[in-house]
Design a protein around this nucleic acid. Structure first.
Length: 708
DNA sequence: GAAATCTTTATTTTT
DNA sequence: TAAAGATTTC
């Protein structure tokens, strides 16, 4: 957000409040980072005894930390920011890691297991980690499920008296085995830090030097993190929390908006400031967002106000045939916008589910629109991934022709021969790290030849595969080469794709002019001139969610009783929609499909805003040209007699079915199937049969009965 | 035509 | 594990 010269009185109030605990309730686009920045600058300017090292600022991500630090440096000027590095600006996790390594003997040279390495570590030592002691059936090898259980137990440790003895044993087994191998995971970092604060006077001494703590994105803090914050507050530290309970979107990780709501009750002497002016979004966009979020039961009442006066913005919703049609229309619209002078990088496509990113990317490829995404699915289906896999295979099964076949378009024959010779020598003996083998091979075949036209992709792909191989070798590096190759090939074939799903292999280039495709979660805190939100159908957004065996099925007991704690509700999905909408400065384009499920509730709710222009009518199609996939889920329609039916009660079967078929028809193939619905009602022909018919047949049958 | 049974398929992600 | 679609059985 550009720097605002004129501060509102509320912003000024927050910046000046440095003597009491402070809660800033900041709506989207309210310039909260600017306020935090200036407040910290204000502290350093007006309190001579406060040094940067007496201030701590928690951010949600490392990226956010970096940008906050840059802004503080700018705000302070060169003299005051000289020892800015002594101020802690970063995530809660790194803060805790620093404390543990600095103030404890036990953890002073521990390594962190991130989610990928945890996976590999547990896979290798599943018995020692206690995995076989939990009943994960029928998924006894679902490591993610096991790790989920561990994480929830750590979060809930306070109540461990209410767990079964077996569960306490499993957690002990897991932590002890990690610690005996000099590893710690992310949940344990905070857990152990809290323990240290409670017991280690050295840590207490350090905390008492902290005079100011600022917590950004406070609405997404979980209970363990909140405990840490309250411990710090006990040392007399001034606490300032900033957040918006309407933007809590990480409840599945334990984000607890109640922390936000009850802050002023739990902390002494709290001053509250509401920043309700949105400097980002045009009036219409704010109106749409307000009209949707008002359907949540909100405990902190507020109403966001747009201060953008130049235009009301363009807010459109469009009905499309299906998913692919939606993405094609988006591509067309992007070309139009770009021709009218909007940069690609000012355009974002925000999706509820990561799985759409790939097919959107393919369509943008076809339309020659440059884009950027950090979905790694793209990496695993990319040009070079499979070649690396084959190259690794060659190490256990020498096949020169096969190898040449896959590299011949990028390698000269002579270079290739040198590379092959090298691979053969690796296969014979030695124990080089796998990433070194691949890198050296690529070196020898001159893979990173600077004249290659896709040189950037080659660099990214080689870095990506190296990272995966290094992660693998960190856990399995002591094995025989052939065992490691077989293991890593298995990992690459199945688990790696899931484990690296949201990992950014590719550093973002801020100067590149690319359309941004990402999940809404990733768009938190960002803004774009134009935002597209596709797939606004029921059970897509809001998503159906909570399927599959979950941690509370495994753990049962108190975990089952409190399962809603991490479950996302309709209200949580609405918050996510709210976040997506408020990323847009000027243009907001939403699409939904006719040929799948019913229209999203949220689009319905948004339509109570006069600014939303819903285009339901321009859908012209020739039934002969359009192939509908009736084998897909039919959304609102399900068999009333089904055991699992979730249809509302209180209607008789016929009413119920008629209601459902009309709803189905309205949402799907309006004209033809509306007729189809009447036909159903009159003749009692099975709905499933009608859905097999062509539109022509329906029209024909219906006219025989004079239904049209 | 209804009921029972079988089959398929299941979010979001930071550190 | 559980929802919902598909298929079979009665």
């Amino acid at each position: 957000m550009e720097k605002k010269i004129n501060l509102t009185s509320k912003q000024q109030e927050a910046i000046s409040e440095i003597d009491h605990n402070l809660q800033i309730i900041a709506c989207a686009g309210s310039g909260k980072t600017e306020v935090i920045t200036r407040r910290i600058a204000n502290i350093l300017h007006s309190k001579q005894d406060i040094k940067p090292e007496n201030i701590v600022a928690f951010t949600f991500t490392n990226k956010a930390a970096e940008s906050l630090e840059n802004r503080i440096v700018r705000a302070l000027g060169s003299e005051l920011s000289a020892n800015i590095k002594t101020m802690y600006i970063g995530t809660i996790h790194s803060f805790c890691y620093n404390l543990l390594t600095k103030y404890t003997k036990q953890f002073d040279n521990f390594k962190i297991l991130d989610s990928v390495k945890s996976h590999l570590f547990v896979k290798r030592n599943f018995k020692e980690c206690g995995m076989s002691d939990l009943n994960l059936e029928p998924y006894s090898f679902n490591i993610n499920l096991f790790l989920q259980c561990i994480e929830k137990m750590i979060d809930d440790y306070e109540n461990s008296d209410n767990w079964s003895q077996e569960q306490r044993d499993v957690l002990n087994k897991y932590t002890n085995f990690l610690y005996s191998n000099n590893y710690i995971d992310f949940s344990l970092i905070i857990f152990e830090t809290v323990k240290q604060i409670e017991s280690n006077p050295e840590v207490g001494k350090y905390l008492s030097t902290l005079k100011y703590l600022v917590v950004d994105e406070y609405q997404d803090v979980n209970d363990l993190q909140e405990k840490l914050i309250s411990h710090i507050a006990n040392y007399g530290t001034n606490i300032c929390v900033v957040g918006d309970d309407d933007q809590t979107i990480y409840q599945f990780r334990g984000s607890n908006a109640n922390n936000m709501i009850s802050f002023s009750e739990r902390y002494a002497d709290v001053h509250q400031v509401h920043l309700d002016k949105n400097f980002r979004c045009a009036k219409g966009i704010v109106d749409v967002a307000n009209n949707v979020i008002k359907n949540n039961k909100r405990l902190i009442s507020k109403k966001m106000i747009s201060t953008v006066n130049e235009s009301n913005g363009n807010i459109k919703a469009e009905r499309c045939f299906d998913e692919i049609d939606e993405f094609n229309r988006i591509a067309k619209k992007i070309i139009k916008l770009h021709n009218s002078g909007i940069h690609y990088k000012e355009i974002a496509i925000l999706v509820r589910k990561g799985k759409f990113i790939n097919s959107i990317a393919n369509i943008l490829d076809d339309a020659n629109i440059p884009y950027e995404t950090d979905s790694t699915e793209h990496f695993f289906s990319g040009n070079y991934f499979n070649r690396f896999v084959i190259t690794l295979q060659i190490l256990t099964d020498i096949d020169k022709a096969k190898l040449y076949e896959c590299w011949k378009d990028v390698a000269e024959r002579t270079n290739f021969n040198i590379g092959f010779k090298f691979l053969r020598s690796c296969a014979r003996g030695g124990n080089l790290p796998l990433s070194k083998i691949i890198r050296d091979f690529c070196d020898k075949i001159a893979f990173l030849d600077e004249t290659a036209n896709d040189i950037e992709t080659r660099h990214i792909d080689l870095d990506g595969i190296s990272k995966i191989l290094d992660d693998y070798d960190e856990i399995y590096g002591d094995g025989q080469l052939s065992a490691r190759i077989n293991g890593v090939l298995k990992f690459l074939g199945t688990d790696a794709i899931n484990e690296y799903k949201y990992y950014n292999f590719k550093p973002k280039d801020p100067n590149a002019d690319n359309v941004q495709i990402m999940t809404i979660h990733k768009a938190k805190g960002l803004e774009f001139n134009t935002v597209f939100i596709p797939r606004l159908n029921e059970r897509e957004f809001p998503t159906l969610g909570f399927l599959g065996k979950r941690y509370y099925h495994v753990l049962g007991g108190v975990f089952k009783k409190n399962k809603t704690k991490y479950q996302s509700s309709l209200e949580d999905e609405r918050k996510l929609f709210y976040v997506a909408v408020t990323r847009a400065k000027q243009n907001l384009y939403m699409t939904y499909s006719l040929a799948s499920k019913a229209i999203s509730y949220f689009l319905d709710e948004a339509s109570s805003s006069a600014y939303l222009d819903i285009n339901n009518n321009d859908l012209t199609y020739n039934p002969k040209d359009v192939k509908y996939d009736f084998t897909k889920s039919d959304g609102v329609c399900c068999k009333p007699n089904s055991k699992n039916s979730n249809l509302e009660q209180g209607l008789d079967k016929e009413q119920l079915e008629y209601k459902e078929v009309v709803k189905y028809a309205q949402n799907q193939l309006i004209d033809y199937y509306n007729t189809g619905a009447q036909f159903y009602h009159t003749t009692h022909t099975m709905l499933s049969d009608i859905r097999e018919w062509s539109p022509e047949k329906i029209m024909n049958e219906a006219s025989n009965l004079e239904l049209i």
